[in-house]
Amino acid sequence: MTRLRHARRFTFMLLLLLPTPALAKTPLVIEAALDRPVVEPLLEAFTRAHPEIELDYRDRSTLEVDRHARQMQPAPDVVISSAMPWQMNLVNDGLAQPLESDESRRWPAWAKWRNEVFGFTFEPIVTVYRLELARHMLPPTTHAALHRLLITRQDMLRGKVTTYSPSRSGVGYTLFQQDARYSPRFWDLVAALGAAEVELEESTRAMLEGLSGGKYWVGYNLLGSYAMQWAQTHPQLIVQVPQDYALVMMRMAFIHRDASHPGAARSFMNFLLGVDGQRLLAGSTPLFSVLPDVVGPYTAQRLRDQVGERLYPIPINASLLAFVDPLRRDAFIARWNREIRILEP
C-alpha cells in the first residue's frame, strides 16, 4: 500500500513538471483598407486588452477589401474601408450584422447607419507639395489656386503632379464625385490636370513615395491621415488643408454577417468605438477621433475649430449608394477620361 502511494505521488509530481498547454486563442480576421503602421497603436492596445484574441489583420486596397467581403470563404469577421459608397453597398446588400452595445448606442447618429456600419475616423482630404515647389511659385492653398498654377505654370509642372485614379481606387472615385458636387469648376481642374500630364496612382502611399522621392511636386486629394504621419519624417513635404473647402472622409467598419468569430468581432468593434479606442486615435494616430468628448491633437472637433464651416464631411446615409450605381459610375469615368485625356495602364 505504501509502495502504491509513493507511485501515485511520483506520477503526480511528474504531471506538475510537464509544460502546461497554452489555451487556444480565438481568431479575429479583419479585412481593412487602412495601413497597419498608421493604426498599429490601436491594434496593439486591443491585443493587450484582449490577450485571448489572436488578431489577423489584412491590409489591402479598397477594391480588394470589397471583393473579399463578398467572396472570401470563410468570410472575414470585421470589414474596414475608406471607400464609403462600397461599404454602404455591402451593408445595404445584407452583409453586415447589427452591433447592439452601449458603445454603438452612444455613437453619434451622423456617423453610423442602422447600428450596422460605423464611421470611426474623421480624416481631412489634403494637398501635399514639396518645398522645392515653393522656390518657383506660390504653393496652392485652394482648389482654385491649384487650377491657376496648372494653367500658368504648366511647362514646369508637367509630369510632376499626382492624384488618385478614379477607376482603380474606390476612395479616389468617391472624392472626385464629392469635388464635382461642391465645385462648379471641378471639370476645368480635371482638364488642367490632364494638360499637365498628371500621374494617376492607386493609393495615397504611392503618391507620398513619389513626392518624397522628388518624382512629384504636388499631390491632389491625398488622405490627410497618411500625409500628416508621412510628413513627420519627410520634412521636405508640406501638408495643406484647402482653405476654400476641405472634404472629410470617414473609415467605415462593420461586423460581417457570416463572421466565424462574432464574439471577437464585437469585442473589437466596441473597443474601436469606445472611449479608450477613440482616445488612442486622437492621441497616437492621425486618424482623428469622432467622439465629441475625446481630447487630443487629432479630433473632429479640433479640426472643425481650425477649418470651420469650410469642412465638408461625406455623409453616412443612403445617398452613398448612388455612387456605386453602374450607370452613374460609367458616366462619371467616361467624362473623366474625356476631360483628362490620359490613357491609364
Rank of each mutant, 00 (worst) to 15 (best):
L157S: 09
M156S: 14
S82F: 07
R153S: 14
P85K: 15
V117E: 13
D155I: 01
T142M: 08
T141E: 15
G119K: 02
F122W: 07
R106M: 13
K112Q: 14
I125G: 03
A75D: 03
R105Q: 13
F120K: 11
M88E: 02
S82A: 12
E123D: 15
D77Q: 00
W86C: 00
S104H: 08
L138Q: 03
E100F: 00
S101M: 06
I80F: 02
M72N: 11
F120D: 13
S81K: 10
L157H: 06
N89R: 15
W110H: 12
T142A: 10
E123S: 15
L146Y: 12
A83I: 00
L99G: 09
S81F: 04
N89F: 10
S101R: 00
Q71V: 13
W86Q: 11
I80E: 01
T142K: 10
Y129F: 11
E103R: 09
A145W: 00
Q97Y: 04
W113Q: 11
W107A: 01
R67V: 01
V78P: 06
M84A: 14
A75I: 00
M72Q: 15
A144Q: 06
A111G: 08
V79I: 14
A83H: 13
A69I: 02
G119V: 05
H147G: 15
A134M: 11
D155R: 12
V126A: 05
L99P: 08
R114S: 12
D102Y: 01
M137N: 03
L131W: 07
V78L: 14
Q71N: 14
D66R: 13
F118D: 04
